[in-house]
Amino acid sequence: MSITYINDLRNGLRELLKSDKTVYLIGEDIGDPYGGAFKVTKGLSLEYPNNIIQTPMSEQGFTGMGIGMALNGLKPIVEIMFGDFITLTIDQIINHLAKFYEVYQIDISFVLRTPSGGFRGYGPTHSQSLERLFFGIPGITVIAPSIINSPGKMITKSVYCNRPIIFIENKLDYSKVLLPTNKLINDICFINPIDSVQNFPMHKITIPEMQPEATIITYGGMVPACMKVQEELLMEEEISTEIITISNLTDIDFTSLLNSIESRKVITIEESWEKFGWGSYITSKLTQSKPFEHTSNIGAKNCYIPAAKELEDYVLPTTKTIYKRILEEIK
């Protein structure tokens, strides 16, 4: 049974609304008939009108409002229309939510979900992957599903883990079909969870019966691109790689991660800027525990995200640029 990422996510939200009257969706334009800028919530306001709160354009205000609701035991899921606009919520998230959770020690169910990323020609203020702004902030957990996790299940887990969650979706992923685990995909690879005990698992995408020459570590919207690169490297160069995808971007189990790396070369890939990026933290932590033959970090060039296709493809890590970089680095 194949299902798209957006439908799976919507199903997850629908299940939450159905089974738990304390769940509320809050955000701009999320009601019907519009159903949200990316249509994630389409139909839900017709089914659960009392639990959908359509807001004016007041991101600071309604994020804070959601936090207030959460303080009194409700379970708000706040949608920020574009990931770029989380800048407006940052004071509420860092100086209020995280402090209530850590300093005031209040268990709180609060999820802020937002679509991140570029490749759609939306230009400098509608294409960024700004989840990086929350990396390393104590009290904040950043979760990013990909096409190999069920975003619907992950949003449910996020709601019930009683701590502040920033939930990062990727615009390009919405229309993609979710991939099954433990099954041969495209006659090439298998996807297996690394540590199924965790709420937010890591997965490994491996090419059977071949020793990987490099390990690619990535998350979210970069997973499909990395899989494409994995396929091309195999077909064109007979190079085998393994991909490790991480869904909890900030509370990483480095022991499991280390144990599951089977090559001597680690390359991280993220859509956001490589400079001071997520990947550099990962490889830094890994190499503090164990020497590798090679580590590197691939991400966007240190530049705004331009609109024109040729420019955007020049700045963001595309399949082509990732392929080229990996080839250069492991040859």
Partner: peptide, 29 residues
């Protein structure tokens, strides 16, 4: 930065006000 049961303060001027609105909304809901 004080919290005691239903009493909450914070050090960001104005920042508690949307939260107060959310608390009030939760009471209504």
């Amino acid at each position: 930065h004080i919290r005691l049961k239903h009493f909450l303060t914070n050090g960001i001027t104005g920042g508690m006000i949307p939260i107060a609105c959310g608390l009030a909304l939760s009471k209504k809901l």
